[in-house]
């Protein structure tokens, strides 16, 4: 497969949108907990993680706009694209559900995000490596946070264990997309710019197994996996998210603080 200079730039733009949109949509989902957390301290904890992720998405989307070269800013990309132009995985747009669903979703994402950013540290694209380095410290904490909640509730009471197992069952088919490379992933990995997902998968599987074991949860048997988000085919949830996320810029174009 050969790509011209131009299409290599397009691939990089796609790739940066994936990174930026994952962080943006996950961050937005978590922000929905603000004021609704089960206890003040956890409300703040989730809000902190949400802010970390929204901050990371700013870096990725700013860079995406530069690479695209059409003068679009982070805000243009966040607030003025429609659902089919978003490139986040389906997992991050899934609904918050109860605390168990939110934690399992976070955990399945954090494990991936952690190993992804460790790989991106070695990107030949200096800007990607720099953003990854800055983000990794935050993501390391996110993973620690969600892992501890997995263990605490999985290995908790009969009720908490059941809720966690149900949440795992509900979300399991959404984790496959994280680790399955398409042309964009494969080409950028080959160029040494993006992460090689086949390298991340064994780490991901091992970490998930380790935490599930400590949490006394069983790995769902389902092998069929959802996909499509990375290519812009989303669940209905994303439309609702964008309605809220983009409301202000849609109703009052160019409004500023």
């Amino acid at each position: 497969m050969k790509h011209s200079q131009n299409s290599e730039k397009e691939l990089l733009f796609e790739y940066l949108l994936r990174l930026g949109d994952n962080a943006l949509i996950m961050g937005h989902r978590l922000s929905e907990w603000c004021g609704h957390g089960p206890i003040l301290e956890q409300d703040i904890a989730l809000t902190n993680i949400a802010l970390d992720l929204v901050g990371q998405s700013r870096s990725w989307l700013t860079y995406a706009g530069e690479v695209e070269g059409k003068g679009r800013s982070e805000d243009d990309l966040a607030y003025l694209r429609d659902a089919w132009d978003f490139r986040n995985v389906l997992l991050v747009e899934q609904q918050n559900g109860d605390w168990a669903v939110t934690i399992v979703r976070q955990f399945l994402f954090d494990v991936f995000n952690y190993y992804l950013h460790k790989e991106l540290l070695y990107s030949k694209d200096k800007q990607i490596a720099a953003i990854a380095e800055k983000s990794l410290k935050e993501i390391t904490y996110h993973l620690r946070y969600s892992s501890e909640w997995m263990i605490r509730l999985g290995d908790g009471t009969e009720v908490s264990r059941q809720k966690m197992q149900d949440a795992l069952q509900l979300l399991w088919t959404y984790h496959g997309e994280l680790l399955k490379a398409d042309d964009v992933d494969a080409t950028l990995a080959r160029l040494g710019i993006g992460a090689d997902l086949s390298k991340i998968k064994p780490h991901y599987d091992k970490k998930v197994e380790e935490i599930l074991a400590a949490a006394t949860l069983s790995k769902p048997a389902e092998e069929w996996m959802q996909k499509g988000g990375k290519q812009g085919q989303h669940s209905e949830h994303l439309g609702y998210i964008l309605t809220e996320l983009q409301f202000l810029q849609r109703a009052y174009p160019n409004a500023t603080w």
Binding site: I39, E41, Q42, A45, E148
Partner: peptide, 20 residues
């Protein structure tokens, strides 16, 4: 002060509430 289920969680909560 803050609420937490155990010492480990108290440290994490303190990190999130008091060292932001």
């Amino acid at each position: 002060s803050l609420h937490a289920a155990d010492a480990e969680m108290a440290i994490e909560n303190a990190r999130d509430v008091y060292t932001r």
